[in-house]
Each structure stands twice: as C-alpha cells, then as structure tokens.
C-alpha cells in the first residue's frame, strides 16, 4: 500500500512572524507535485517545516504520514520516516567526507531503529553502491573523499543533493530549486536523473521557477503559494501557464493574498529604514 504525506492547516512562524497561514497538502507515494509561487511566498519555509527545522515554529496544524503525526519528531526521525529535502542552499560541513557522511545517513535511514554506536552498513557493499550512483549522476569518484560541499561549485552542490536522494531513496522527496544554479546541460542531466529515480515508491515535490525539471517530471498536481497560503491548485497545465505568464494573474484572482504579500514586503522595506 502506498504511503500518504498529509499536511493539514499548517501554520508556521519564524521569529514570531507568521509565514505559513494554513497550508493543506496531500501527497501520495509515486505522485509528482509542483509547488510554485513568487519569491518569498513560503515554499522553502514549507519544505523546512516539513523537515522539522528548529527555527520554524509550528503554531498550528498537523503533518502526518499514514495518519501518524510527525509534529513532535526531530529532523533525523523524519528522515528515517522517509522524508527528504534537497536544499535550495546546501550546507558545507568541513572535515566530514562525503562517503563517511553518506554511510552514516544510509545506515540510519535504512535501519530506522538503529541505536547510536551500532554498526554501519558493510563498507564493501556501500562503496560499490555509492560508486554506481555517482557514475549515473556523472560525479567524479574523487568527490566521495572530499569534504561535504566544501569548495563545491553551486552546480556540484546540487548534484550532491541528488546523489544523496539516490542513495537514501525516500518515500517523499522535496526538491527546493534543485535546478537553480545549474547550467542548461546540467539541468537536463539532473532532470533526467530525477525522472529515473522517480517511480511508484517515491513521491516528488518539485519547487521551481523553471520548466525544465517539470518537462521531464510531469506533475499530476500543481499548488500555488501566495503569502503563505495555497491559493490555486491544478495540474501540469497550471505550472506551464504560470511559467509563461508569471504571477500577475494569480495576484489579480486573489487580491487579499496579494495585499498581504504587499504588506509583508512593505514591512520588510520599512524595517531597514527605521533602523537607519
């Protein structure tokens, strides 16, 4: 039976500021969703909140997989439940080798009940698997021995996120602008790689401002965020339309949300002025 990730009335604030104002979302394993919306509309916030980032306070609502609430779970426990976030801005961890990090990650995600200090998956198996995933993604073997994202180019970091996705094979993958910062060949390459990884066991939530990823990974569902609310839903055509025409139409159709967006932007602009 396929799993369902359910988000109900999700309200999230950062530093007391309400960013998400009641988001509903239902994603089933095997589906592809596009999450769209203008800059600052709350897409990354939703992604972080799903992972349980400590700074993102869940003021109201519920996140669950197959009815089991994730609200109280730490990010690592959520990862072990099968959620994965490919970061918009991957983090550098100096001194930690890609292979060592991934071996820990893979061990924990595949044996969710593993206790700290218990054995890792066998080295030989792991190496072989890592090597073939890297080959498939066109990542040079030497990257396994490099420090995680340390000195990686923007594009290399994004590939590294996809390598992690490929190794961890989550039930629900959120890709936060995985296509940004990649040159057009790389976008195509990564898009194809993702479509190969997709399948009945993986749901993909694609956050993007471009079309390429969606061409290769055609969404059945599109959700449009504006000022922290889902204001429109549709299918692949909606995503295509937004890409062609921008968000002017959306704002016109949802004047209240557009006004909130404007108000937040004004508040954001006023603050530095007041500080001056």
């Amino acid at each position: 039976m396929s799993s369902v990730l359910k988000v109900e009335n999700l309200c999230v604030s950062i530093d007391e500021k309400l960013i998400l104002k009641g988001v509903d979302l239902e994603v089933r394993q095997g589906e592809i969703h596009a999450l769209m919306g203008p800059n600052g509309s709350g897409k990354s916030t939703l992604a972080y909140a799903l992972m349980g980032h400590p700074k993102y306070e869940l003021v109201d609502g519920r996140i669950s997989i197959d009815g089991e609430s994730l609200n109280e779970l730490e990010p690592d426990a959520r990862a072990r439940k099968g959620i994965f976030l490919a970061f918009q801005y991957p983090v550098t961890v100096p001194g930690v080798k890609v292979a060592d990090f991934l071996r820990h990650a893979v061990t924990n995600v595949r044996n969710p009940n593993r206790k700290e200090g218990e054995g890792l998956i066998p080295m030989r198996e792991f190496r072989a698997e890592l090597k073939s995933r890297m080959e498939e993604l066109g990542i040079e073997p030497e990257f396994a021995r490099r420090y995680l994202n340390d000195g990686f180019s923007g594009g290399e970091k994004k590939r590294m996120e996809i390598l992690q996705l490929a190794m961890l094979r989550p039930k629900f993958a959120i890709l936060d602008e995985t296509d940004s910062g990649l040159d057009s060949d790389a976008v195509r390459f990564v898009s194809e790689a993702i479509s190969r990884l997709a399948g009945p066991d993986m749901a993909i939530i694609i956050i993007t401002h471009h079309e390429r990823l969606l061409e290769f990974n055609r969404p059945q569902h599109t959700h449009v965020l504006l000022a922290g609310r889902v204001v429109e839903r549709g299918d692949a055509r909606l995503a295509h339309e937004l890409h062609d025409q921008g968000y002017t139409g959306v704002r016109q159709r949802h004047p209240e949300a557009a006004a909130e967006e404007q108000a937040a932007a004004d508040a954001g602009n006023r603050q530095p002025a007041a500080a001056r």
């Binding site: 992972m51 980032h53 400590p54 730490e74 990010p75 690592d76 959520r78 990862a79 072990r80 994965f84 976030l85 970061f87 991957p90 983090v91 961890v93 100096p94 001194g95 930690v96 060592d100 990090f101 991934l102 820990h104 990650a105 924990n108 995600v109 969710p112 700290e116 420090y147 992690q164 961890l168």
Partner: peptide, 20 residues
Amino acid sequence: FYLMCRGISRYEAMHMIVEG
C-alpha cells in the same frame, strides 16, 4: 540541521562536526 535531515542524530552530527 543539514546532517539531521539525512537521518543522522544530533549526537552523531555533533560528533561528525567535531571529528571533522
């Protein structure tokens, strides 16, 4: 947070960063 998002516990993450 980044390491924890990959299933690594806070303790293990801390250890990795110190070892790093």
